[in-house]
Amino acid sequence: MSLHRKASVLPGFGLSLGFTVTYLGLVVLIPLSTIFVKSAGLGWTGLWDAVTTPRVLASYRLSLLASLTAAVISAVFGLVVAWVLVRYPFPGRRLVDALVDLPFALPTAVAGIALTTLYGPNGWLGARLAPFGIRVAFTPLGIVVALTFIGLPFVIRTLQPVLEDLEADVEEAAASLGATRWDTFRRVLLPAIRPALITGFALAFARAVGEYGSVVFISGNMPMRTEIAPLLIMTKLEQYDYAGASAIAVVLLVISFTLLVTINQLSSRNRLTGATD
């Protein structure tokens, strides 16, 4: 089969593709391969041993569970926010809409120290929650809070275009057939936005799993309790245990890549079938 090129009359195919692939190879692929090579050096048993120590397992468990929880919270409240932004006009809506991207624009370290100060024992929120026995900073709860912060824009921005594209007539048809508003939401609207919701959730989850800067301050980094996987990698690096760090990293990379591929599949399927009927 010949390499069919659409619009091959346009110039620069070879040059642009060549440059792109070379750049990616040098900047992305070769550096990434070092992780795999390094952990391969441990051999399968060595690798297995390195990633199944209690401390490492605890860090995986914490990272995954906290990311999952945060993604769920982001999904639920993100849906509410997206709904309100798309459907309810109110003064300052555009300002609020711009604010949604703040976690994306704000450096993670700044978010990290701000959240820690806010939820710490003397912080505005931390002090108010303490009498109820709720401690946020230096607990897994704090990690969830931080991960929710950074995952929120992903959910909202994935849902907004889909909500905007929903046709009014479908809801009106449901109402004319006797459905209550809640029924219409549950049976007509929710299925239509479910693909986008899942995609947004997956994006927030993927981002949260690898997150470092926002979390490292508020978590307290106590091994076995509030030590997320990226931090454990950092610790190993500081101890010059490069092989151990690579081993932990490899697992994270595999998770990330799987998520990336899944998300791409999900979103291309959304584009093909359309998010509305």
Partner: peptide, 30 residues
Amino acid sequence: FTFPGKQLLVTLIDVPFTVSPVIAGMMFVL
């Protein structure tokens, strides 16, 4: 243009997004 492997290329471009920053730094140390 269209060419085989285009989707793979697009996915590859997204890879740095999904890699944890700590791992990104570690690669260059290695």
